[in-house]
Simulated assay, not measured.
Amino acid sequence: MKNGNLQYQFARLSIAEKLIVVNIIIFIVSGLIQALFSTSPNTVMGWFQLPKNFGEFIVQPWSLVTYSFFHSGIGHIFWNMLMLWFASRIFLNLFDAQRFLTVYFLGVIVGGLFFLLSYNIFPALLNTNTALIGASAGVTAVLLFVCSYIPNQDVRVFIVNVKLWHVGVFFVLIDLIQIPYGGNIGGRLAHLGGALIGYIYARQLLNGNDIGAGFSTFIEGFQNIFKPKEKKPKFKKVYKNQAASSTTTRDYDKVARQKRIDAILDKISKSGYESLSKAEKDFLFKAGKED
């Protein structure tokens, strides 16, 4: 397949699918480096994993985000990406890619901070030598967001239907129950941090308060740095009347479309996702794809 075709196929993916692809590529490349150059995992991931010590973290502050792109094994990345795919399908039927990234990376950051603070506050963890890797905090934030935003939505789990809030409670309880018995305590604390911000974000949004607006603007500005600048044509022929008419029509369509989206989201907040008609669900799905 030609490089242009690969770029085209990648561009067609949803924002969550692109994130999954990036995680898989990083996992494969880091594994190959370890295997071919006989290096230890820490040699490759040392500058990207999140250390428990504040002194080390200050030297590599980027690790508060980059730790989420590295995984310890196939099982680790498989379950994280599977849960991200599941949660994102619901999320992107309701909101655009920008809000998805906001919730995901807020989960990553808050989860990382939970890890840092816990290993520097709780006596049982102070002398533990560990570091944090994995996308779990971001994935959990997205999952708990949808579980809190449309809690009564039915989803199919194996052969039974359950409510989304059941799914959210299940995953939070799993982490809470396993913390006392040791084993990946740092990861489970990060999960809880992601779960907390996902829950708070969704409940605040239902009340009309977008707590991630500022962070969303930051992400958008960061993305714009890497976007190629469009070249302006040297000659431009303008038909004034047609252009004005076209602009007015597009603006009207955009306003009408946004009003319909707002009305549907308001209906969800009052009556739940299951109260939507098939036409409304289809409209939300298409709107999410277009965004």
Rank of each mutant, 00 (worst) to 15 (best):
L276M: 09
S14T: 14
A243F: 12
I58M: 12
A135F: 05
L206A: 04
L196D: 04
K232M: 12
L6T: 10
A287S: 15
P51E: 09
Q98G: 06
Q223A: 15
Y119P: 02
F78D: 05
V103K: 00
F69K: 07
S148D: 00
G198W: 04
G111H: 02
D210K: 03
V44N: 05
S148N: 00
T43R: 06
Q178P: 00
E17G: 02
F171I: 13
D154F: 12
R12S: 10
F100I: 04
G194S: 05
N42F: 13
D210M: 03
N184H: 11
Y199V: 02
L126Y: 14
W47N: 14
F171H: 11
S63N: 13
P61D: 10
K163R: 14
V155Y: 04
W165A: 08
Q178K: 12
F122C: 02
V157E: 12
K234A: 10
Y201Q: 01
S245N: 11
K237S: 14
F170D: 10
N3Q: 08
W62Y: 08
G112P: 10
I197F: 01
G214V: 10
R99G: 01
R156K: 15
W85E: 08
G183M: 06
Q49H: 12
N161Y: 15
A137L: 06
A97K: 14
L19A: 13
V157D: 07
F69R: 07
A141E: 00
E17S: 11
Q223C: 13
K234I: 08
T140P: 01
G212I: 01
S245P: 00
Y119E: 04
K254G: 04
A244G: 09
P228C: 07
